[in-house]
């Protein structure tokens, strides 16, 4: 009786093992670089339909601050191969001057993403959802989805944006090129953060939420 289900189960396990090996590219949520703060292990997907915010892969989620070439990275160069290699690493809650609501200790609002190479003003950031370009600042733009979610893109080449304030966009539309636009030198990267309303028990709060697990899922779709 067991002879037929067992081979099928073995086949399924082998396929699952193969898929699991593919996931070696992604460290789990909350696993911050040692010494860079305490992450939160949120495996829940908040944005199942998220469009990965870079037009093309490969891309690398990691810390431009604590990685090689970063201000607190202990030396090295921003173009170091380590920064452009798997595995991905969460950096929501990474140490900053103040704490934010969902972090045990730490204040990095979002996830930093490096595009395929360290070339400045080359790789496109794209709309993560259908919506409206709701805010254009000197160093950032904010996309408001149809549901209201605020997706913020920081360090784009702001003088050459593909969108203007209050433009309507579709998921995947080009927004701007990844750069290091800021007051002081930074490695080329996209800072991507998400602010939304969450209900936790009886509390309704508007907070920066962890995007890492949703980004992993969106990246998987990008590669298909």
């Amino acid at each position: 009786m067991m002879s037929r289900p067992i081979p099928l189960l073995i086949l399924g396990l082998l396929l699952a093992a193969g898929a699991a090996r593919a996931d070696d590219r992604f460290l789990p949520p909350g696993d911050l670089l040692p010494g860079s703060g305490e992450g939160i292990a949120v495996t829940a997907i908040l944005y199942p339909d998220l469009r990965f915010p870079l037009e093309e892969g490969p891309a690398y989620a990691n810390s431009p601050t604590f990685g090689p070439g970063g201000a607190r990275g202990g030396g090295g160069e921003e173009c170091d191969a380590v920064n452009y290699s798997y595995p991905w690493r969460d950096n929501f809650c990474e140490l900053r001057r103040s704490d934010i609501a969902l972090c045990v200790s730490g204040g990095h609002f979002g996830q930093d993403l490096r595009p395929k190479t360290c070339e400045d003003n080359t790789h496109w950031a794209v709309a993560a959802a259908d919506g409206v370009i709701a805010h254009v600042g000197r160093f950032s733009i904010t996309l408001q989805s149809r549901d209201g979610t605020l997706f913020r893109y920081v360090h784009l080449a702001m003088d050459e944006l593909a969108v203007a304030e209050l433009d309507t966009v579709k998921a995947g539309d080009r927004i701007g090129k990844v750069s290091n636009d800021w007051l002081t030198w930074l490695p080329v990267h996209l800072h991507f953060d998400v602010k939304d309303t969450v209900r936790i028990g009886d509390a309704t709060r508007i907070v920066f939420v962890p995007p890492y697990s949703s980004l992993v899922r969106a990246y998987g779709r990008l590669e298909q």
């Binding site: 829940a44 908040l46 969902l102 549901d147 209201g148 939304d196 309303t197 209900r199 936790i200």
Partner: peptide, 16 residues
């Protein structure tokens, strides 16, 4: 910026 929806996050997120 205004909107009228919320994510049900009990059990998934904690306010610290």
């Amino acid at each position: 910026l205004g909107w009228r929806s919320a994510i049900e996050a009990s059990g998934a997120l904690t306010l610290h």
